[in-house]
């Protein structure tokens, strides 16, 4: 069976008249139907850009340089190469998106009813009464107690958690195949975070919706996802099931990320942090590994030649020269070699 979303060799460049540099490079992601997939990475790792590329919402200066984003629903479409009109039919109906800031993601001048039903009006042909009923049902499903009242409310009358629930309702009302959630809980209180994540899981199971979760929070990934891709400086450095990434991280960056989480056991120890900062795109090395400058295990080779994605074990890819040293590297595919 074809995966629902198949991103192959996606590269995004920053392009103006004067400058042209690469930001996201060689991203490969496969998401099956009903799968919960996570992308984790620090700010500036390119995870949000990847999600915007799927939605065809990249800012004007950013262009998809290479690669394909194949969406398999009723028909097969390449979202990297689709007309604007076609794309508008995909948005909200086949793929929808939840944003980070529930405070600003709703238009302050319209009621919840108007905004919730706007999606339906665009993509479906229901009568007004039917639409209202669907809207109220959807609000009930996302756990809003007085849906008839909330329909009449304006965004400023709702709390952050309520707004994020409304956003989820809006995203799922057309029953899309894929829901992209870009840091959906970052702006919320910790107590609300868990509720919202549970709600998203529950509803995606109910509606058979796959989730692409974009986050910097490994806890969120652990709680919701089945597979995860770790991104660093615009590249996927490690990809596997959540269990494998958490139990046997292979890439030095993933190891660093995991050891920088505070756990209750070792209170006295100083919290580990990866030295240095995420490089900005103009600092990316032409050759070699993009993580080499911060990597505790960096070798000469790391600065001269880019490592490939190696299969370190069954269903577990990692992009590091160490695996060759260790002798457990099976090249995934040699055709993507470029140096």
């Amino acid at each position: 069976m074809k995966p629902l979303l198949n991103i192959e060799n996606l590269s995004i460049n920053y392009m103006t008249n004067k400058k042209d540099f690469n930001i996201v490079k060689d991203v490969n992601i496969k998401i099956d139907e009903r799968m919960k997939y996570g992308i984790v990475g620090e700010s500036g790792s390119g995870k949000s850009l990847t999600s915007l590329a799927i939605m065809n919402l990249l800012p004007e200066v950013l262009k998809i340089q290479e690669g394909s984003i194949e969406l398999n629903t009723d028909s097969t479409k390449d979202l990297a190469n689709i007309s604007k009109k076609e794309m508008r039919k995909v948005r909200g109906r086949e793929i929808s998106m939840i944003f980070q800031e529930p405070m600003t993601a709703l238009d302050p001048l319209y009621t919840i009813e108007y905004q919730l039903l706007e999606v339906l009006k665009i993509h479906k042909t229901y009568s007004k009464k039917e639409m209202y009923k669907i809207g109220v049902d959807m609000l009930k499903k996302v756990g809003i107690a007085r849906p008839d009242q909330v329909m009449k409310d304006y965004p400023h009358q709702l709390s952050g958690g309520m707004r994020q629930r409304v956003m989820i309702a809006m995203a799922l009302i057309c029953q899309p195949k894929l829901l992209i959630a870009d840091e959906p809980t970052t702006a919320l209180d910790v107590t609300i975070q868990a509720q919202i994540l549970d709600l998203m899981n529950e509803l995606s199971d109910l509606h058979n919706t796959a989730i692409l979760m974009i986050t910097h929070d490994l806890g969120v990934i652990l709680e919701t996802c089945e597979r995860v891709a770790v991104m660093y400086a615009g590249q996927i450095v490690e990809e596997s099931t959540v269990e494998k990434i958490f139990e046997e991280p292979a890439h030095p960056y993933t190891k660093g990320l995991l050891s920088s989480i505070r756990s209750l056991g070792n209170k006295s120890e100083e919290l580990y942090s990866i030295p240095g900062n995420v490089p900005t795109p103009d600092q990316y090395q032409e050759l070699g590994c993009r993580f080499a400058t911060r990597c505790p295990y960096a070798m000469d080779q790391c600065f001269n030649q880019e490592p490939l994605m190696y299969q370190v074990q069954d269903d577990h890819l990692s992009k590091c020269w160490l695996h060759v040293e260790e002798g457990r590297a099976n090249e995934r595919s040699s055709e993507r070699t470029r140096s």
Binding site: G92, M97, E101, E118, V119
Partner: peptide
């Protein structure tokens, strides 16, 4: 720059 504009784009508004 507000997210509700991106959101409107993301639900397919012309």
């Amino acid at each position: 720059e507000n997210e509700y504009i991106t959101n409107a784009q993301a639900i397919g508004v012309r």
